[in-house]
Each structure stands twice: as C-alpha cells, then as structure tokens.
Amino acid sequence: MIVIEDLRKSYGERVALDGVSLTVPKGQLFAYLGPNGAGKSTTIRILTGLTKRSGGRASLDGCDIEADALAARRRSGLVPQQTNLDNDLSVGENLDIHGRLFDMRRGERQDRIAEVLAYVELADRRDQTVRTLSGGMKRRVMIARALMHRPAILFLDEPTAGLDAQIRRRIWALIKRIRQDGTTIFLTTHHIEEAEFLAERVAFLDQGRIVVIDSPANLINRVGAWAVDVLGEEDMETEYFATRAEADHGIRGRDGSVTIRRVNLEDAFLAMTGRKV
C-alpha cells in the first residue's frame, strides 16, 4: 500500500510537486498520467529514495520513506525511465549484484535469478553481456532485476518509453502478469493507451498537482461516450456526446472534415486540464 500526503518538491523557485496526496491500495495497478514535466518522475524518485522531498509525507506498506527509509526500500522495486544496467557485466551479474544489495543469500540469489529471467522470458540470456541486448530485452532485464527481491510494490517509470509497438505490448502483458501475482504497481506514463489498457485507477497530474483520481472508465464517462472531431481551417475542435445518436445529430450541418470516435483517456485529460498529455 502506498500512502502519500501533501507531498511537495521544489528545485529553487521551481515547484515540481505541489501538495500531492493519494493512496494506492495493496495489489492495485495505479497509473500516474501527465505530460512531460508534470511531476510524475519526481514523485517516483521521492518514493524510491532517489530524491529528497521538500515537504509532506509518504509511506510504503506503513514504512515512512525517510524515517524508515531502508525498510521502505526493501519493500519496493524500481524500473527507472533510463536504462541503468551495467553494460559491461552479464545479465546474471547485474541481477546478482542487485540480490546482494538486498541482502539475499547466495543460494537464494541463484534460484531467484533463474526464476525472474524465466518470468521475463530471458532465461537463455543469463550469461550474455548486457551491451549486446536489444532495448526491449534491456527493459525486461530491468523488470526482472526489480523483481529479484520480491518487492510488495513495483515502481515503473515510463516502462515502455522508446520501445516499438510490438515490444510495448509484450511489456504490457508482463506488467499484467506481475499485477495478477499480487504486486502493487505504481506506473507513470504519458501513453494514454498504456494507462487505459493496464490501470485500475488513474491519477491525472498537471503542473505538480493531482487534478482527478478515478478508474479509466469513470474518467471517460465523465466526459461522454462519443467524441466528434471537427477539423477547421486553423485548428481542431472536439465535442463530446453521451450517445452515438447524439453525436450523429451533433455533426449535422458542420463544415470541414468530421470524425466520430469513442472518447478515450486523452479526451478526459484534455477536458479536465485544458492541455494534452
């Protein structure tokens, strides 16, 4: 369980997080959605001990992230946005060092390395140098590494950034499987479809503040079921309707190129923040 209360972070004059409060129940897959610079990574960095908070409180499974920092870190696993594997070491060595950092015994480490590599379908890559892996494989190794010490909470910071659509789907399937195994997942993304496909609850974050927290379906329903995009000469206007019939009625007599489509999370974000993700 993750509890965040009035979390704040400033870098000099710049406010990165402006009083964020939320709770993620045990076992939930929670997505943190917002544009670049909204404060998503800052939140994860604070929760995982990479950055100090300026104010507020947070705890992971009841352990305060600063007063009880080591216990909090034992309960969490992190897959950061940037690849941070030792390129000159093998996949197995990277995982072994992680296991040692989390005080795992030798036998336990060896068994777990085999287990997590099988889990991410990279069992045959154990002795391969990380440098020789593809981007998607490296990301899966990072997920395997974060799972090594069996964390109760997994932080995924933009886990599919820079990956092609096929690899992204594979990572999504993996994340779903981790969630089904009972791990609480806190995911940041600016891929709308990622949050929509994976998350049970979504927070919209804008300029360091949470705008709304709800399930993807409820957030979409707040806006409507159908969207009509009308492409004018200079910009595109979008209107939302509760039913298809209303949407059909709404486009009658409109000039320009008109498209009717289902409302998605991006529409919800745009409607609630006035900006795109």
């Binding site: 001990g49 990479l50 870190r73 950061p80 941070n84 390129n87």
Partner: peptide
C-alpha cells in the same frame, strides 16, 4: 551517465 548509482540509492544500502 550510466545512472547505475540510482540502483544503489533505491536499495536498502547504508
């Protein structure tokens, strides 16, 4: 550059 230091920071390492 390699950001491996973050692995240490996120670990229960004194």
């Amino acid at each position: 550059y390699a950001h491996i230091f973050e692995e240490f920071q996120a670990a229960p390492l004194t």
